Amino acid sequence: MSALPIDIRVPRFQLFSPRIKRLGNSTLLALSGIFIAVFLWWLGTSPFLSENTILAGFAPDACFRALLQLLQSGEIFTHAAVSLQRVLLSLLFALLVGIPLGLIVGLSRRLEKATSPLFQFIRMISPISWMPLAVMVFGIGDAPVYFLLTIAAVWPIMLNVSAGVHAVDPCWLTLAKSLCASRWETVTRIIVPAIVAHALTGIRLAIGIVWIVLVPAEMLGVSAGLGYFILDTRDRLAYPELMAVILVIGLIGYLLDLSARLFIRHFVHHRRNALN
């Protein structure tokens, strides 16, 4: 008598239950952290602890009401769109400068030794320090903002690309040399594909730096943007709106960084699957 086949398949929900459980725990921890932060925020602006009436304008309830009004009017979307446009264009300019420069420096040891002290010196200068010079050279408007954001984003991109060139497996370079590959073929077929992950990491770091520099850079006389809107709310003494804009800036910055992290993770996962 032949044995009856035994169905050992595990229900689908049981396969994914550990992952769902971990996701649920992470979500609960994140929500608890946010709840504690809002509670401390409310406590710090509560009239029970301070008699300063100005702090009432920064209270969570007043801030969330102002945020709802800004969302309903659509005004905050206009300023956010202008700021995001400046960030994306500045990143594009930084990529056009940082990637070729990183490749050139990474491919030449002599050039790297000659330029490394200079680049490190300039990199350590705060982009905000260039404000007066940017205004004198480019005038008032969008041009100095793009200059400040670009100079802030160039360095992490360039340094990560250069580090990626140094991290290329020497065996691949030896193989290319044994196959009589030209310098251009070695760069385009081996080095460039190998440094994509490093370049993406540099872009993620650049996004964080640019988003931080954006607000003070948009205080240079522009007529729109989140930085301009903060100055406008301050001049109007609209403190709830000011706090609401600060929350929007933090939220957009978090979403930009999250998008970059997810894209890098997806790229690395896809590349590993392709190699396997």
Rank of each mutant, 00 (worst) to 15 (best):
M1V: 04
S2H: 13
L4V: 11
D7W: 04
L15P: 10
S17I: 02
K21E: 13
G24K: 00
L28D: 03
L29E: 00
L31I: 06
I34V: 12
F35K: 05
I36Q: 01
L40G: 06
T45C: 10
T45K: 01
S46T: 14
F48H: 03
L49P: 03
F58T: 07
F58R: 05
C63T: 15
F64D: 09
A66S: 15
L70G: 10
L70S: 02
S73F: 08
Q85I: 06
Q85C: 03
R86A: 01
V87I: 08
L88H: 02
L91W: 07
I99K: 02
L101E: 01
L101C: 08
L103A: 12
L103T: 02
I104M: 09
G106T: 09
L107R: 03
L107C: 05
L107I: 07
L107M: 09
K113R: 12
P117L: 11
L118I: 15
Q120N: 13
S126H: 04
P127M: 11
M131L: 14
M131C: 13
P132G: 04
V135N: 04
V137M: 08
I140Y: 04
I140W: 02
P144I: 09
L149E: 06
I151C: 01
M158E: 14
N160D: 05
G164D: 10
A167Y: 12
D169P: 00
D169N: 14
L173N: 04
L175I: 14
K177L: 02
S178V: 04
L179A: 12
T188H: 13
I191Y: 12
I191Q: 11
I195C: 06
I195A: 00
H198Y: 15
G208A: 08
I209W: 10
W211H: 04
V213P: 04
E218K: 02
M219Y: 08
V222T: 00
D232E: 13
D232C: 03
R234T: 12
L258A: 14
A260R: 06
L262P: 11
R271E: 13
N276C: 07
